[in-house]
């Protein structure tokens, strides 16, 4: 087990280094560097300005040299400087990562709490009204574009029935407030984005749970467990659901891997100060340092969650062995 863990960690580290260089190199191939973007928006920039800024930003150096400088800075604890916002990357990213984490984890928990029982009950009564209803909600959730759903939520619950704010992360106020008030305030701003994000996830998770449960309930051990006289709850949750967990763990692990990557559309529609739009904008404006850190976080999360999923497979199904 220990050898397996160490091997996976080493593989992960190598993968991060290789992918980060690849990403860095691909970004340098994108048309227009930060100075080009500056020239296009300002006709007064002179040839001297261009040369000076390229030298200052290190853009006159080959990609591998720039990458090595970047790695050196990262290893020394300096995440770099955002050329778009003109502030250190850690100052820019830290609060946004926290906001994105809160939004994503809340939406994920809410979705799982609704989708998993709904999927299980739907699988227990295939063809029933409840099953049709869950199927309808699932397909609607998967099919409705999130930007449309977001705008509809704003119109419904912020304009027509002004129960929640149309956008933002927290109420803007100078006075310091109590922790409890801040939590409630944050919750108020979370309702609409979470609702908009969850509907899609509920649909996806419910469909996966339903099909995994249906598959699991067809096995001989379910018949045997029922024949042994076990209660329905025990048959469903201990024998059926546990065996349906493997595909669910995979889907959940993949979803968990994006909790720090942000939901760009939802964040943009609700003016939520998260990391998704920041990453998108940083790639668009060639803000290398921000884009690279976001990328490293994304890759690390995917690797970590896959790793976690592999371990959880063994917990859910003791027949799985690690060599």
């Amino acid at each position: 087990m220990l050898t397996y863990l160490l091997r996976r960690l080493l593989q992960g580290a190598i993968l991060i280094v290789v992918l980060s260089y690849l990403c860095f190199y691909l970004m340098t191939l994108m048309p227009g560097d930060p100075v080009d973007m500056m020239i296009s928006s300002n006709p007064k920039i002179t040839a001297e300005d261009v040369e000076r800024l390229r030298k200052l930003y290190g853009l006159d150096q080959p990609a591998y040299l720039r990458y090595s400088h970047w790695v050196k800075d990262i290893l020394s604890g300096d995440l770099g400087y955002s050329r778009t916002y003109r502030v250190p990357v850690q100052e820019l990213l830290a609060p946004r990562l926290l906001n994105t984490f809160i939004l994503s984890i809340t939406a994920l928990c809410f979705s799982v709490l609704i989708a998993v029982p709904a999927g299980v009950f739907s699988a227990l009564r295939p063809g029933s009204r409840f099953d049709h209803f869950i199927n309808f909600i699932s397909f609607a959730g998967i099919s409705i574009p999130s930007f449309w759903l977001g705008i509809v939520c704003i119109i419904l619950f912020a304009v027509w029935i002004p129960l929640f704010p149309a956008g933002g992360t927290l109420t803007i106020q100078d006075e310091s407030t109590s922790f409890g008030f801040e939590v409630l305030d944050r919750l108020k701003y979370l309702v609409l984005p979470v609702l908009s994000l969850s509907l899609q996830q509920i649909g996806r998770f419910a469909r996966y749970t339903r099909s995994a449960m249906q598959e699991s309930l067809r096995h001989d051990y379910i018949r045997t467990a029922t024949a042994k006289g076990l209660s329905q709850n025990r048959v469903v949750w201990v024998h059926g659901f546990r065996n349906a967990l493997i595909p669910l763990i995979t889907v959940l692990a993949l979803s968990m891997s994006s909790i720090f990557s942000g939901a760009i559309i939802t964040e943009t529609v609700f003016a939520y100060q998260g990391v998704g739009k920041l990453t998108y904008d940083s790639i668009n404006s060639n803000d290398y340092n921000v884009a690279m850190i976001s990328f490293i976080i994304s890759v690390t999360m995917v690797l970590m969650m896959n790793f976690l999923a592999d371990i959880l497979y063994g917990v859910a199904d003791p027949r799985i062995r690690y060599v």
């Binding site: 705008i151 704003i154 119109i155 912020a158 304009v159 149309a166 956008g167 003016a271």
Partner: peptide, 10 residues
């Protein structure tokens, strides 16, 4: 969403 923000008073 600018108009919605205006109408909702944000």
């Amino acid at each position: 969403t600018m108009e919605a923000n205006l109408r909702s008073g944000t």
